[in-house]
Measured scan of single mutants.
Amino acid sequence: TTIEWNGTKITVDNPQKAKELAKKIAKKLGLTVKVHGNTITIE
C-alpha cells in the first residue's frame, strides 16, 4: 500500500497500518484521506 502526499510516497506493507498512518498525517496537516485501491492519497 502506498501513501502519497505532496510528491512524497511511502510504502507500507500492512494496508491497515497504512490507513492509520495516513489518517494521522492528514489530521496533523488538516487534510483529507482518499483511498484508491492500493494507493492512499492525502489531499
Score class of each variant (00 low, 15 high):
residue 19 K to M: 15
residue 39 T to R: 11
residue 18 A to H: 01
residue 32 T to M: 09
residue 43 E to H: 10
residue 22 A to H: 00
residue 2 T to K: 08
residue 32 T to C: 12
residue 32 T to N: 08
residue 18 A to P: 01
residue 23 K to G: 07
residue 18 A to D: 00
residue 20 E to F: 14
residue 11 T to S: 08
residue 33 V to F: 10
residue 27 K to V: 07
residue 21 L to I: 11
residue 34 K to L: 08
residue 16 Q to I: 12
residue 11 T to Y: 15
residue 30 G to W: 04
residue 42 I to K: 01
residue 18 A to N: 00
residue 28 K to W: 15
residue 1 T to Q: 07
residue 9 K to A: 06
residue 33 V to L: 10
residue 24 K to S: 08
residue 9 K to P: 02
residue 41 T to S: 08
residue 15 P to Y: 14
residue 41 T to W: 14
residue 37 G to E: 06
residue 41 T to G: 02
residue 27 K to L: 13
residue 35 V to Q: 07
residue 2 T to V: 13
residue 7 G to C: 15
residue 25 I to T: 01
residue 21 L to H: 02
residue 14 N to T: 11
residue 33 V to D: 00
residue 37 G to T: 03
residue 40 I to L: 08
residue 39 T to F: 07
residue 3 I to L: 06
residue 36 H to Q: 12
residue 31 L to P: 01
residue 27 K to S: 10
residue 32 T to R: 10
residue 4 E to V: 13
residue 39 T to K: 09
residue 3 I to F: 04
residue 7 G to T: 08
residue 20 E to L: 15
residue 3 I to D: 04
residue 12 V to I: 13
residue 29 L to F: 15
residue 33 V to H: 01
residue 17 K to G: 04
residue 41 T to K: 09
residue 5 W to M: 05
residue 5 W to N: 02
residue 33 V to M: 11
residue 12 V to A: 04
residue 5 W to S: 03
residue 27 K to A: 11
residue 29 L to P: 03
residue 12 V to T: 04
residue 14 N to M: 03
residue 28 K to H: 11
residue 33 V to P: 02
residue 19 K to T: 08
residue 40 I to S: 00
residue 29 L to C: 13
residue 1 T to S: 08
residue 16 Q to F: 13
residue 5 W to T: 03
residue 15 P to I: 11
residue 32 T to K: 12
residue 21 L to W: 14
residue 14 N to H: 05
residue 11 T to G: 02
residue 19 K to G: 04
residue 25 I to M: 07
residue 8 T to L: 15
residue 42 I to H: 01
residue 20 E to R: 15
residue 29 L to R: 06
residue 39 T to Y: 09
residue 23 K to R: 13
residue 20 E to H: 11
residue 23 K to F: 14
residue 38 N to D: 07
residue 30 G to T: 02
residue 43 E to M: 14
residue 24 K to E: 08
residue 35 V to H: 06
residue 26 A to T: 04
residue 21 L to S: 00
residue 20 E to Y: 15
residue 29 L to K: 05
residue 43 E to W: 14
residue 17 K to V: 11
residue 37 G to W: 04
residue 4 E to C: 14
residue 42 I to D: 00
residue 25 I to G: 00
residue 35 V to G: 01
residue 3 I to T: 06
residue 11 T to F: 14
residue 36 H to E: 12
residue 35 V to Y: 12
residue 21 L to R: 02
residue 18 A to R: 02
residue 13 D to Y: 14
residue 1 T to Y: 13
residue 5 W to R: 03
residue 38 N to P: 03
residue 34 K to M: 08
residue 33 V to T: 04
residue 13 D to W: 15
residue 1 T to E: 05
residue 11 T to H: 12
residue 38 N to V: 05
residue 13 D to Q: 14
residue 18 A to F: 05
residue 16 Q to H: 10
residue 6 N to D: 07
residue 14 N to P: 06
residue 12 V to Q: 02
residue 28 K to G: 05
residue 14 N to C: 08
residue 5 W to A: 03
residue 36 H to R: 12
residue 11 T to M: 11
residue 41 T to P: 00
residue 30 G to F: 03
residue 19 K to E: 09
residue 16 Q to T: 11
residue 39 T to D: 03
residue 31 L to Q: 03
residue 28 K to S: 09
residue 35 V to K: 04
residue 29 L to G: 03
residue 15 P to M: 14
residue 1 T to W: 14
residue 36 H to L: 11
residue 38 N to F: 07
residue 39 T to C: 09
residue 15 P to N: 07
residue 38 N to L: 07
residue 26 A to F: 08
residue 6 N to R: 10
residue 10 I to C: 14
residue 11 T to E: 07
residue 23 K to I: 13
residue 40 I to T: 01
residue 17 K to I: 11
residue 17 K to L: 12
residue 5 W to V: 08
residue 39 T to M: 09
residue 22 A to E: 00
residue 7 G to A: 06
residue 35 V to D: 02
residue 22 A to K: 01
residue 27 K to M: 12
residue 20 E to T: 13
residue 6 N to S: 08
residue 31 L to M: 13
residue 37 G to S: 03
residue 42 I to E: 00
residue 36 H to K: 11
residue 21 L to D: 00
residue 36 H to W: 09
residue 32 T to F: 07
residue 38 N to R: 06
residue 4 E to L: 11
residue 33 V to E: 01
residue 17 K to E: 08
residue 8 T to S: 09
residue 38 N to G: 05
residue 42 I to S: 01
residue 41 T to Q: 06
residue 32 T to V: 13
residue 37 G to Y: 04
residue 43 E to S: 13
residue 1 T to L: 10
residue 10 I to Q: 01
residue 31 L to Y: 07
residue 4 E to F: 13
residue 26 A to P: 00
residue 33 V to A: 05
residue 6 N to T: 09
residue 35 V to E: 05
residue 8 T to M: 15
residue 8 T to R: 14
residue 10 I to F: 09
residue 39 T to G: 03
residue 39 T to A: 06
residue 4 E to G: 07
residue 4 E to A: 08
residue 35 V to A: 04
residue 25 I to D: 00
residue 42 I to W: 03
residue 5 W to K: 03
residue 19 K to S: 06
residue 40 I to E: 00
residue 8 T to Q: 12
residue 2 T to H: 09
residue 30 G to M: 03
residue 21 L to C: 09
residue 35 V to L: 08
residue 34 K to C: 12
residue 14 N to S: 13
residue 4 E to N: 09
residue 11 T to W: 15
residue 1 T to C: 14
residue 39 T to N: 06
residue 19 K to P: 01
residue 41 T to H: 09
residue 28 K to D: 07
residue 19 K to L: 15
residue 21 L to N: 00
residue 33 V to Q: 01
residue 21 L to Q: 02
residue 39 T to P: 01
residue 20 E to A: 15
residue 22 A to W: 04
residue 15 P to H: 13
residue 25 I to K: 01
residue 31 L to I: 07
residue 19 K to W: 15
residue 18 A to T: 02
residue 7 G to N: 07
residue 18 A to L: 04
residue 1 T to M: 14
residue 33 V to G: 01
residue 13 D to F: 14
residue 26 A to S: 06
residue 3 I to M: 05
residue 43 E to N: 08
residue 4 E to H: 13
residue 7 G to Y: 11
residue 38 N to W: 05
residue 18 A to S: 01
residue 32 T to Y: 06
residue 23 K to P: 01
residue 16 Q to W: 14
residue 2 T to L: 10
residue 19 K to I: 15
residue 10 I to R: 01
residue 20 E to G: 06
residue 7 G to E: 06
residue 30 G to V: 01
residue 8 T to E: 06
residue 34 K to W: 08
residue 20 E to V: 13
residue 24 K to V: 09
residue 5 W to Q: 02
residue 5 W to C: 10
residue 17 K to M: 11
residue 38 N to A: 07
residue 8 T to H: 15
residue 26 A to W: 06
residue 12 V to G: 01
residue 40 I to C: 02
residue 25 I to Q: 00
residue 9 K to V: 12
residue 4 E to K: 09
residue 29 L to A: 05
residue 9 K to M: 09
residue 2 T to C: 13
residue 19 K to C: 15
residue 37 G to C: 06
residue 22 A to R: 02
residue 16 Q to M: 11
residue 39 T to W: 07
residue 36 H to Y: 10
residue 36 H to V: 13
residue 35 V to S: 04
residue 25 I to A: 01
residue 2 T to A: 07
residue 40 I to M: 03
residue 35 V to M: 10
residue 35 V to P: 02
residue 23 K to L: 14
residue 23 K to T: 11
residue 30 G to Q: 04
residue 13 D to H: 12
residue 24 K to A: 12
residue 10 I to A: 01
residue 42 I to Y: 02
residue 9 K to Y: 10
residue 27 K to W: 07
residue 16 Q to D: 10
residue 13 D to V: 11
residue 4 E to T: 08
residue 7 G to F: 10
residue 43 E to D: 08
residue 17 K to R: 12
residue 11 T to P: 02
residue 27 K to T: 08
residue 5 W to H: 04
residue 20 E to N: 11
residue 40 I to G: 01
residue 8 T to V: 13
residue 28 K to A: 12
residue 11 T to N: 07
residue 2 T to D: 06
residue 3 I to S: 05
residue 14 N to A: 03
residue 14 N to F: 04
residue 5 W to Y: 10
residue 37 G to L: 06
residue 10 I to H: 02
residue 29 L to D: 02
residue 25 I to S: 00
residue 42 I to N: 00
residue 19 K to F: 15
residue 20 E to S: 13
residue 1 T to G: 07
residue 31 L to A: 10
residue 1 T to I: 15
residue 37 G to V: 03
residue 41 T to N: 04
residue 13 D to C: 15
residue 13 D to S: 14
residue 30 G to R: 05
residue 13 D to M: 15
residue 20 E to W: 15
residue 30 G to A: 03
residue 29 L to W: 14
residue 8 T to D: 05
residue 2 T to N: 07
residue 17 K to H: 09
residue 29 L to M: 08
residue 31 L to G: 12
residue 34 K to Q: 08
residue 20 E to Q: 14
residue 26 A to Q: 05
residue 6 N to G: 12
residue 3 I to N: 06
residue 8 T to N: 13
residue 22 A to S: 02
residue 26 A to I: 04
residue 7 G to W: 10
residue 31 L to F: 09
residue 9 K to F: 11
residue 26 A to N: 03
residue 41 T to L: 13
residue 27 K to N: 09
residue 7 G to P: 04
residue 11 T to L: 12
residue 12 V to D: 00
residue 28 K to C: 12
residue 35 V to W: 09
residue 34 K to S: 11
residue 10 I to G: 01
residue 27 K to G: 07
residue 10 I to T: 02
residue 2 T to R: 05
residue 2 T to I: 13
residue 1 T to D: 05
residue 4 E to R: 10
residue 4 E to W: 13
residue 16 Q to N: 10
residue 25 I to C: 09
residue 23 K to S: 09
residue 18 A to I: 04
residue 39 T to L: 09
residue 17 K to A: 10
residue 23 K to Y: 15
residue 24 K to M: 14
residue 6 N to E: 07
residue 1 T to F: 14
residue 26 A to E: 03
residue 39 T to V: 13
residue 19 K to A: 10
residue 19 K to H: 12
residue 11 T to I: 14
residue 30 G to E: 02
residue 5 W to G: 03
residue 15 P to K: 09
residue 28 K to T: 08
residue 22 A to C: 02
residue 26 A to G: 05
residue 14 N to L: 04
residue 15 P to V: 10
residue 19 K to N: 07
residue 29 L to T: 10
residue 42 I to F: 13
residue 28 K to P: 02
residue 8 T to F: 15
residue 20 E to I: 14
residue 20 E to M: 15
residue 8 T to P: 03
residue 42 I to M: 07
residue 12 V to L: 13
residue 6 N to W: 15
residue 21 L to Y: 09
residue 9 K to C: 14
residue 37 G to M: 05
residue 24 K to Q: 10
residue 18 A to Q: 00
residue 30 G to K: 06
residue 16 Q to L: 11
residue 29 L to S: 05
